[in-house]
Design a protein around this nucleic acid. Sequence first.
DNA 1: CTGAAAGCGCTTACAG
DNA 2: CTGAAAGCGCTTACAG
Lengths: 329, 329
Amino acid sequence: MTIDDIARELNISKTTVSRALSGKGRISDSTRNRVMSYANDVNYKPSAIAQSLATSRTMNIGFAMPSDYDIVDMPFFQTCLWGVTSMAMSMDRDVFISMVDAIDISGIIRLVENHKVDGMLLGRTYSDDKAIAYLKDMKIPFVTIGSSGVPGVVQVDNNDYEGCAELTSILLLKGLKRLALIGGNSTYIVNNNRLNGFLDGHRRAQVKPDESLIFMDSHGSFVIDKIVAGLLEGNVDCIIGMDDAICESILTALFSRDVRIPEDIKVASFFNSSLLEHHQPQVTSLKYNVEKLGMTACSTLLDVIEERSTVMVTLLDYEVAIKESTKIM
Amino acid sequence: MTIDDIARELNISKTTVSRALSGKGRISDSTRNRVMSYANDVNYKPSAIAQSLATSRTMNIGFAMPSDYDIVDMPFFQTCLWGVTSMAMSMDRDVFISMVDAIDISGIIRLVENHKVDGMLLGRTYSDDKAIAYLKDMKIPFVTIGSSGVPGVVQVDNNDYEGCAELTSILLLKGLKRLALIGGNSTYIVNNNRLNGFLDGHRRAQVKPDESLIFMDSHGSFVIDKIVAGLLEGNVDCIIGMDDAICESILTALFSRDVRIPEDIKVASFFNSSLLEHHQPQVTSLKYNVEKLGMTACSTLLDVIEERSTVMVTLLDYEVAIKESTKIM
DNA sequence: CTGAAAGCGCTTACAG
DNA sequence: CTGAAAGCGCTTACAG
């Protein structure tokens, strides 16, 4: 069933059919209705392929999913993808998926070179990002989820800085003066944002941060266990994990030593996920709306593709969830 | 850069260019080489869209990812998707992703109606599956990952039945005569396969199963905790979890009661994942190659699309990993 | 308001 | 072995 079939059936030209269907150009209400109702009767659906060729617009976007994620990041990307696809669908787009990592971006290149997408969404950014370099070079519209640090790149991200500053200052104002922070890879932009937010939270609460309580690049539960053990020797009010996986390790280290939360020490996290969701006691943390992040990234990409005005950096809101783990006894 | 450009540049017809590029039809080696090397020089890539229109083949497949999964299923679908995309890429295909659940298959309908895919991969099957019904009705090639029970549907699955029978009989032969089985939703086909494998394992080892030790439809850690408590009252050698999440709950229930594994009781699982991977002691379980499952599903779908001969049911191999949790002391 | 025609970038019988 | 032509199913100036 093509536009020709229905033109023939209705004794009009296919130009007219096309116009009726697309709603573009002048057309009488009566013929439009005739076309519409007939098309509806026979359940006519235009060929997206033919439309693509004629308009040189695929109505597809690509989502580059990192394949080198840690198991704990999975819920994040899944939820993000869910947001992307649902927004895409509501904007009449479809999404190709390709797996990439820091060194292999062949999945992206395929999609772009075969002209299958109008733009790309990057699920993760790397330092010295090959995908960003390639897409800029090719002049393909794209937006990154997370910060890239590369000038001229449109990005959508959670407002880690503000969130961390806010949570930190709240804890300080609650009287928890000596805050320890355990963080991961310091070359990740996101971790730097969180660290800086942590420091700014101190400034806002007019408390001087104790640099000796800040531990970056703490990889693995073994390392974290040692750090926690060390902290328990000293005078610390609260231990903050820079993300949920780290916080999980902190909790484990504490439990194994029969340290009670929040009686003996408080715990908080700069990121929340299902990992911490079911924990007892409930853990104070920053909550982000990851599905919305995906949706926003998608609609922003469509803005870029359609050359509508776009802000370069979109920072999404956070929620500070104060739970039992930081309760003052 | 189109086929016309290069035809003009080389002073030949675009028919010839097309033939040189596709390798179809007679063509002299010299002209082919001229075309190839020029195309290579200018990094010419054919428009997949134009090819699609001309051949009415999109070179795309769709992957229907369930959106109603439990958190514990995520690694499975991710890994599966990874297998699918890598196989697709090696077969020169791209994959659209759409999120679906038991009641909403609009994502699939979009892809099919817009003629954007040559076939679909169903990541999960439901009883009374709407997607299967739709795709059969539309006569769209598709294959399911997991069993559908619907006649005439091509499927690729792990060989749960054989794996469970094998593991069960091994445990019995090791002298663990009284095996308890805790399983989930009995309406899921996969769970029935596992239950039947469990029973067949008894038959093979010539041990009569004790029906009172089989608990299906055990949802939630609370329910499982009660079952485990009950089992500890009686005389049980080993508790088997039908999947990794259930096994995790079993382990938790045991630990909270200071029951030692494998000293006091043995534990095994009919499915493995990262959930159990890092457990101490290591848990005896069935291991499947989920990435291969995805790859096989993808290549099978391409067989169906290309109308090559296909077997209706492909069952993938398992590995029985005997670990410390079932060690005879 | 409507239509004939050209064009999007390919493929593929059909001739030669 | 090579080419002119038609066709895939749409869109969109350009006329009328």
